[in-house]
Design a protein around this nucleic acid. Sequence first.
DNA 1: CCTAGGCTTGAGAGCGCTTCCATCCCGTAC
DNA 2: GTACGGGATGGAAGCGCTCTCAAGCCTAGG
Lengths: 342, 342
Amino acid sequence: MAFLVRTLDELAALSGVSRATVSRVINGGSVSEETRARVTEVLERTKFRPNAAARTLASGRSGIVGVVMHLSPHLLFQDPYFTSLLQGLTDALAHQAAGMMLWLGNRSKEETLDQILWMRLLDGVIVTADTLDDPLVDGLLASDLPTVLIGHRRADRDASYVDVDNVAAADVITTHLLDIGRRRIGHITGRRGTVAGEDRIAGYLQAMARSGIPADDLIVDGAFTAASGREGARELLDRGVDAIFCGNDATAEGALESIRARNLSVPGDVALVGFDDVGFAARLDPPLTTIRQGVQEQGAEAARALFHLLRHRGGGPHRVILPTELVIRRSSVGETKGGRPP
Amino acid sequence: MAFLVRTLDELAALSGVSRATVSRVINGGSVSEETRARVTEVLERTKFRPNAAARTLASGRSGIVGVVMHLSPHLLFQDPYFTSLLQGLTDALAHQAAGMMLWLGNRSKEETLDQILWMRLLDGVIVTADTLDDPLVDGLLASDLPTVLIGHRRADRDASYVDVDNVAAADVITTHLLDIGRRRIGHITGRRGTVAGEDRIAGYLQAMARSGIPADDLIVDGAFTAASGREGARELLDRGVDAIFCGNDATAEGALESIRARNLSVPGDVALVGFDDVGFAARLDPPLTTIRQGVQEQGAEAARALFHLLRHRGGGPHRVILPTELVIRRSSVGETKGGRPP
DNA sequence: CCTAGGCTTGAGAGCGCTTCCATCCCGTAC
DNA sequence: GTACGGGATGGAAGCGCTCTCAAGCCTAGG
């Protein structure tokens, strides 16, 4: 085992230069080729890495970013949306050799905010902004900590964020149902109070209004869950619908069960569409027409946005709207239009 | 907005004491009641929190622990075992107000190890040790960083770890199958090369040997996945078995499909048991007999073990073997013993 | 009354790094 | 030959905190 070099001074002594020069080599300052080569050699031989705390104290930068997804870990880990997001984030952050500190909904938003802000260790933070009223997001934005939102509220127009256009996408998929001749198109909403939920309602209403079809009695509240889909579908079927647009794919999965339970066929009697295109959407029977949003890509893009922010301090906010795609499968345009069973 | 206090010195000036005294108040040193009250008041009024980097540099402690689960985030987030583990960990860590840095399998084990060790920022690290040959775990144990393993290899006897007795549990569930009269009991193993996989084989063999039943031709390799369960079950059914012990619940789920596909009944023709008791085990049809191990509890216990280690530096290793429980459901002792269909 | 000992407090020396500034050296221009 | 400019380097001042040490004060015992 080589002699353990623990400080810049030791490394400097070993290379025959000053501490300042070693620091320049490590951080890419201006150093002559010859000196750089000599120091680099020692650097690699000793596997020396500068002390992160000292570095942070002296420079004000830590190379660590915070990721905040304030919802119950229980919910988070079983929701493909959040796990995909995390996956995209961890990949992009690891790629930039950035450290990641993670905060989930284990403590209150106030405690979490307090811990993050006052630690003064993070270079920046990425936070999911899925709820309309969220003191954690507000607090982060009000602070001087560079912050990137995943999703955004109306009030966040001036913030940096990565998002998709939920209104437009919901309009597109509703229009798809209109295009294939459906008229009484019900909507089981996402969780009320969430940005995505409300925006998808807006997009749905926009498309319905354009085609002149009243939709007042065709909306029931959901919660982004299969259970809410089961219940919402029963309600809508009672009111008589020939299509259902669900707030997300999990909701559609639940709705499918209720439709089946009444011996109705999909899409013969009722066309069914979801939102998100999570893994199981294509594996449902029939496969689900839905809106694909690259969730993992959103995570990666958020990481990139934060790095951009850190590199261009004082620059304006960095906003990214990622594209969505209508994925048509057999739950809306199945080849076999099964009739009502006897 | 109150005047922003950024350093201990400012806070000290505001309270009319020295920086050292403020530090004592914050860190629980010996201070007179009166002084403590005065400083505490200012502390709360200004919402001052010490700079984490400076604190770490001066004291050598950061209040941040690393969590390392080196497998593809894709696999991790869809495996209830790891997500439950993470859930238990985040809860326990948040409870202790400890920060958490997370490393997943985004980069190579060598790169990850390098980053963790040389950052010299973490107080300690918790790492899943599920693979027999794992340079990352070896590297962490060889370092001076306090380390707690989740799971352990034979070579890790002297390390601190949290684990369950996989051998004993596998023996118990195999014995259960023997007790209900099964004789040709097949085993679809977990992923070979993993500690859990190999230990469960050992427990299975131990129980079979005790009852004097040869088991040489009753073992097929699995991989902790439903796909490997489907395949393994077909293989075992060809060889003729009246029970199958699967390496985990996901494997059992797959096996169930293959048994059904041959129009055989569970448990009538083949008794089926799994391991882990993840969420869906009780929801299978029939509900699955399995071994319950409190995975979330393992995560929490690992966090506690690490804190114990940090509080008692220089003390011996801290080892915890958590209990497991045989959960008998209808996949092994169903009320209805359906016969072979026509 | 003097001294020993305990408790509280402040001074100050780092922790290991970054970064400003001064210095030095060399090449070029005059 | 002298003056000047620019790149490379070292010196040293912090970054904000912890923690040792010594000083100061007070009480109690002899």
